[in-house]
Amino acid sequence: TAPVQFELGETEDLIPGGKLGSATEDVMKELGYSEDEIKAAEAEGAVCGPVDLAVLQGK
């Protein structure tokens, strides 16, 4: 669903798919980071792994 809605017609409610950060490790690997570097970045809080979007909504 498009994040912008116009009054021209009906649109379905936006239902986010996946999890926030679900591709972080894959992207970092493509950029050349090692497994140890990725885990260190996660431990430092510089990046995060998959997070359920409900967490961001305070649920």
Rank of each mutant, 00 (worst) to 15 (best):
T1A: 14
T1C: 07
T1R: 13
T1G: 06
A2N: 13
Q5D: 12
Q5S: 10
Q5M: 04
Q5C: 06
F6V: 12
F6H: 11
E7A: 11
L8F: 13
L8R: 13
G9T: 10
G9N: 10
G9Y: 12
G9I: 08
E10T: 11
E10R: 14
T11N: 09
T11E: 07
T11K: 08
T11I: 12
T11Q: 10
E12G: 12
E12V: 08
D13I: 11
D13K: 12
L14N: 03
L14R: 04
L14Q: 04
L14V: 09
L14M: 07
L14D: 09
L14G: 02
I15E: 09
I15V: 15
I15P: 00
P16I: 10
G18F: 12
K19G: 00
K19L: 05
K19T: 06
K19A: 06
L20H: 09
L20P: 00
G21V: 04
S22Q: 15
S22R: 09
A23I: 04
A23N: 09
A23G: 01
T24V: 01
T24K: 05
T24G: 02
T24N: 01
T24A: 00
E25H: 04
D26T: 15
D26G: 13
V27S: 10
V27D: 08
V27C: 02
V27K: 12
M28S: 03
M28D: 01
M28V: 05
M28E: 00
K29V: 14
E30T: 10
L31K: 11
L31T: 02
L31H: 04
L31G: 03
G32R: 05
Y33S: 03
Y33W: 11
S34N: 03
S34D: 10
E35F: 06
E35N: 11
E35D: 15
E35C: 00
D36K: 15
D36T: 08
E37C: 02
E37I: 03
E37D: 13
K39H: 03
K39I: 04
K39F: 02
K39W: 01
K39D: 09
A40Q: 09
A41E: 07
A41D: 01
E42Q: 04
A43D: 14
E44W: 00
E44M: 04
G45Y: 05
G45M: 01
V47K: 03
V47F: 05
V47G: 01
V47N: 02
V47A: 05
C48T: 12
C48Q: 13
C48D: 07
C48G: 08
C48F: 13
G49T: 05
P50R: 08
P50C: 00
P50L: 07
V51Q: 12
V51R: 15
D52E: 13
D52T: 06
L53D: 01
V55N: 03
V55R: 07
V55M: 01
V55A: 05
L56D: 02
L56Y: 14
L56G: 15
L56H: 05
L56Q: 06
Q57P: 00
G58R: 04
G58E: 07
G58W: 07
G58F: 06
G58Y: 06
G58A: 11
K59Q: 07
K59R: 11
